[in-house]
Amino acid sequence: MQRAQRRGRAMGSDLHVIVWACGDAAERLADLAVLRVELLESCWSRFRPDSELNRLNARAGRGAIVVSDDLHRLVASCAQACVWSGGDVDATVLGAMLSLGYDRDFAAVAMSLPVAAAPVPAPGMSDVLIGERTVALPEGVGLDPGGIGKGLAGDVVTEEIYAAGAGAVLVGIGGDVVTRGVPPDARSWRVSMRDDRFDAATEIRMLELTPRRCAVATSSTLRRCWAGRHHVVHPRTGLPSRSDTAQATVLADCGWRAEAAATVGLIRGSASTDWLADRGCTPYLLGGRCG
């Protein structure tokens, strides 16, 4: 088998793709993986005015509309993550994010001045209607998939590239890494876990991803901070979450669940450890800022 690797940017984060496949197929499949991530971002991004997600949000309150398979899977996964997390992960936080000033790509938001923000609790996913090929948003409800989009993109792309003939594939988007298969020269993928509490992002552990635990996600209240706020919003308050955990890294069986679990870890803090473990996840939770 041959190894092909690609690096770039996607979904506001660093993109890393590794593909193991026979002969020239490795290079071709690596290019295809990068293209597929770009297509998902163009569909799912709330920062692209022409994205299908933004068109769906603009039609809130106007009944069900037919959506692409990619958008349908995103919305369905958001609904599943909301139920699985007991409501801690809720894509209807769009109003809260806009109220807090996260209304543009983060590079621009980080340069903005503080503004007064009225809390906007998430209305909840329960009234979002998902048909066989359609989605209907209630009036006044918009979706912001947040990190679920990165984790799910890893799921989609690794599934497709593996099915297309790869012997092993890894897709990393920011703090989310999803794999399929294992490299021919190893029994698992090894992924570095780093500590956001230190400026040098110190490596503190090496994690092993296997076919049963094929995904890891890291979320932190120390990244994507602006005007005294951070990007992890508690859906019940509409305000940035507050707990005894500053960084959550979670191993799980798929990307979207790893991402949802990391959000639970930040919102519930150390009290979530047993809850996550009982649901088949392996959490690594780090306390408040150090240094």
Rank of each mutant, 00 (worst) to 15 (best):
R48G: 09
T92H: 03
A64E: 11
V66A: 13
H72S: 11
P119F: 08
G154S: 03
C254N: 15
I173R: 00
H72T: 06
V182F: 08
K150H: 13
V233G: 01
V141R: 00
A227H: 12
P123C: 12
N57V: 09
A30V: 03
P283N: 11
C281L: 14
W44G: 00
G12T: 09
D278W: 12
P123M: 11
A166S: 11
C22T: 08
L39K: 12
T134H: 07
D155W: 01
A21W: 01
R187T: 14
D155F: 03
A60W: 02
D105T: 05
S42I: 02
P184F: 06
G154N: 00
R213W: 13
T282M: 10
M11A: 11
G288K: 10
T202S: 07
G95H: 06
D176V: 10
N54V: 13
E139S: 13
V128D: 00
L53S: 02
A76S: 15
R9E: 14
L222Q: 12
A261N: 05
R212I: 06
L71C: 07
H16F: 12
G86C: 13
T273K: 08
L56S: 05
L129R: 10
L71Y: 03
V109T: 11
C214N: 14
T134P: 08
A168G: 07
A76D: 11
R212C: 10
W189K: 00
V135Q: 00
R62E: 14
S68Y: 08
W84F: 13
P183F: 01
A26Q: 07
P211Y: 06
V156F: 04
R257Y: 04
V169A: 04
V177E: 01
L137E: 00
A258N: 07
L251C: 08
L170W: 02
G280W: 12
R242L: 14
V250E: 04
A4K: 03
M1A: 12
I161H: 00
V93I: 15
E160T: 06
S99Y: 09
A166E: 04
W275R: 10
F47E: 08
V216K: 01
D244Q: 08
G8L: 08
A168S: 09
R133P: 01
D195H: 12
V115A: 15
G287K: 03
D127E: 14
C82G: 06
G8T: 07
V83L: 15
I148T: 10
R46V: 11
A33Y: 06
D31S: 11
E38R: 05
E139C: 10
G124V: 02
V115T: 14
M97R: 13
C281N: 10
T221K: 05
D24R: 07
T92I: 06
Q80G: 13
S68L: 08
A122H: 04
P283D: 08
G12A: 14
D70G: 05
A21R: 02
L209I: 12
A21K: 00
V109S: 05
E27C: 04
W84L: 13
E159L: 12
R229P: 05
A277F: 06
D90T: 04
